[in-house]
């Protein structure tokens, strides 16, 4: 299982499409930095195929004032959870 991280908002960049195409059926995706915008209900359907395998980094959500605005079906993890995700993955691939 690969953990992918994405730091681009799907509203401004198509990198998310490259990311999704590179993901295998067990892989997980963590949205970080500006990528957390992808957790907004208006954008989260773009990641619909990942149900249960999509995560968003809490600190980056909070610092952007988006905490109450995220799609509740997305797993919210803090930095401790980010580290745990890297422990569980065979390798990590970053998209930017």
């Amino acid at each position: 299982m690969i953990l992918h991280t994405l730091n681009r908002s799907p509203a401004t960049s198509r990198v998310y499409q490259q990311t999704l195409d590179a993901m295998a059926s067990e892989d997980r995706l963590l949205l970080i930095e500006d990528g957390v915008q992808g957790a907004l209900p208006s954008l989260s359907p773009l990641f619909g195929e990942l149900s249960g395998r999509l995560y968003v980094l809490q600190e980056d959500v909070i610092s952007r004032g988006l905490e109450e605005r995220c799609d509740p079906s997305i797993h919210v993890v803090n930095v401790d959870g980010f580290v745990l995700l890297t422990e569980e993955a065979d390798k990590i691939v970053s998209w930017f």
């Binding site: 690969i2 195409d21 590179a22 295998a24 892989d27 390798k91 691939v93 998209w95």
Partner: peptide, 17 residues
């Protein structure tokens, strides 16, 4: 093809993007 890209990622020990 795009559906084969994920195989490439899985098959390598280290992937640098």
């Amino acid at each position: 093809g795009r559906h084969e890209v994920s195989d490439l990622f899985q098959r390598h020990r280290l992937v640098l993007n």
